[in-house]
Design a binder for these strands. Structure first.
Lengths: 363, 363
DNA sequence: TTGAAAGCGTTACCAA
DNA sequence: TTGGTAACGCTTTCAA
């Protein structure tokens, strides 16, 4: 145990029953309906009455019970959102963009994280559904059969984000992770690299990582290049530590590797710093690229080439989608697909090749 | 707009009213009470009856309405948590540790972020209180008067974390940010540095940052050293970008600065990389330290000296505290104070000084 | 082991 | 502008 636990007496605290609307109504000399209206900025209450009620509520320390309000009004006012990890700047940005938009619509976010596990996602979604969210946003397009069924049958608008599922449940705000990875492979090849490796995590859990790897393999194959330099380094989310370890593995197994694409900027940074510790020059001895346009890719020395997928914008578009669907009375039967265009950011770790390269056709 | 918006028809979707317990009861030929029991693993239901009910529920696609359950049982089953920013590895770790513990107690987390703004915190707490959380965890010990009053009068256990408030509301799991900063100042001085600067954000918003700066100033003063090299660089959360900018400001205003303490590892990394871009050697030309023991401080080259405050453990202890308080019938009137001991991690950016220093008494 | 009835605290609906 | 009444869907409580 890290801390020191210290308890001191603080007795005499009472726990009286919290006042209800009935108490406020009595105190203000009106009906509960009038209290309810006054508290909701409903205009059909005279200023005098409202003032009286607000004073009474304040005096009693009244706090509305939204559980009862929800049950009665059948409006929960929130959107359920699942992300793989709470500790990930990309998903955090998406949530931020989403809440920006939802705030205006007076919708709150109920956030849960799946730890990159579809079983956990199923559990989470099941819990969320009990709270009757007005919409559900899930990261990724891969779910358990049961989870999928739960979502489809929920009668609640569903938005899948950060992916372009082959068979979407309903609405989608995302991009093809495979195509995004191809952007980077093409960039590598254009710069003259031929012996290229991929560093990722366990592909069964990180489905977006899997897609990126698939795109990587396909793009290399399309160029007639060897696409077998693949390292799977631990459970997602793989971060700097795994990136560093994986670099060692790459160099051991394929010493002539010229460039490495990493499943995210964090592992790319880990690989980069491991190179520096080993005295390898980046990009002169080996090129490195990441994914996600995290802050670190911009600030690292050398700065890291990456793919920007507009994480914040995904959130904003998702918010717009949710609001639009909710306003359309949901009977319209329209499926919204907002496709993000991933953007290559070329930086120092993939600088033009200045040295001799055996296969440098375009360098 | 980044993406391409595409809508396609998907009509024919119906929205039938969701089945209730009454429907399940009818389908299974039992009373709603029996359904309720069967769904809660209540033992007082025969296996045959339960099987019948589960089948019926499955067939109807029934999902429990927890809003109604909460209203009836007066148990919401969740803990409200506010953190300054969703995109911060330290707070994310705390939330992770917290949810680890709360999961066992079948408590869920309702998470909100204040954007380092006490007004926003007040708004958030007010919303949360309406949902009748069983406990409230707030980051930091500085609140608006009204927010404080709301918390005190809520009748709900309150835990303040990541701080050691002079006048705590109730329970506390935290540490003195000022004392933690002093650890680093002492470390600098021990290593022979005398001209030391501090990089932080706007101190009115980031109260923990303010405390760290206060500790920095007091520690320098205690050693009879100049403590006026303070840079406030933008609104929190300040990150790599602000750290880099602030480094420039430090060097411009006090060119003879020998060491810099940063309010977090992220700004420290920004300062470090800015040094590298300027051709300054760290720590030979200038030493740098961060705060928070983020991954990056370990992996950066050179690795960054920092303060580890056991973010995950704060979460775990907070969870333990919540559970303990809830189990003690809350009438016991005991205040729990779990004090974390911040730990200095000395790394390469504050390596022993090898060169001449004008005031190197201990070097 | 099962069931009937009475809420839980609010808002929808209709009436005044 | 205000109020009475009936839900909302579940669990508590007590009884069988």
């Amino acid at each position: 145990m890290v801390g020191r636990l210290n308890t001191s007496d603080n007795s005499g605290k009472k726990k009286p029953k919290a006042p209800t609307m009935v108490d406020v109504a009595r105190e203000a000399g009106v009906s509960t309906m009038t209290v309810s209206r006054a508290l909701r900025d409903d205009t059909s209450v005279s200023d005098a009455t409202r003032a009286k009620i607000l004073t009474a509520a304040e005096r009693l320390g009244y706090v509305l019970d939204s559980t009862a309000a929800v049950l009665s009004s059948r409006r929960t006012g929130f959107v359920a959102v699942t992300i793989p990890s709470i500790n990930n700047a990309n998903f955090a940005e998406t949530v931020r963009g989403l809440s920006e938009r939802l705030r205006d619509a007076r919708l709150e976010i109920l956030l849960g994280y799946t730890d990159y596990d579809v079983q956990e996602e199923e559990r989470l979604i099941e819990q969320f559904l009990r709270r009757r969210p007005e919409a559900i946003v899930v990261t990724g397009g891969v779910h358990t059969d049961r989870c999928r069924r739960l979502l489809v049958n929920s009668g609640v608008p569903v938005v899948e984000v950060w992916d372009l599922p082959a068979k979407p449940i309903e609405h989608v705000v995302g991009f093809s992770n495979a195509d995004a990875a191809k952007l980077m492979v093409d960039h590598f090849i254009e710069r003259g690299y031929r012996h290229i490796a991929f560093i990722g995590g366990d592909t069964r859990r990180d489905t977006r990582g899997y897609e990126r790897r698939r795109g990587f393999v396909e793009a290399l194959a399309a160029h007639g290049l060897d696409a077998r330099r693949l390292v799977a380094s631990g459970l997602p989310p793989i971060s700097m530590h795994e990136g560093a370890a994986a670099l060692g593995e790459v160099l051991t197994r394929w010493p002539d590797t010229e460039a490495i694409m990493c499943v995210s900027d964090l592992s790319a940074f880990g690989a980069l710093t491991e190179c520096q510790r080993r005295g390898l020059r980046v990009p002169d001895d080996i090129a490195i690229a990441g994914f996600g346009a995290y802050d670190i890719s911009e600030h690292a020395v050398p700065s890291i080439s990456t793919i920007d997928v507009s994480a914040r914008e995904i959130g904003r578009l998702t918010g717009d989608t949710v609001i639009r669907v909710l306003n359309s009375n949901s009977e319209s039967g329209v499926r919204i697909v907002a496709q993000i265009e991933p953007r290559l950011i070329s930086r120092e770790t993939t600088a033009p090749v200045r040295r001799h390269r055996r296969a440098g056709t375009t360098a």
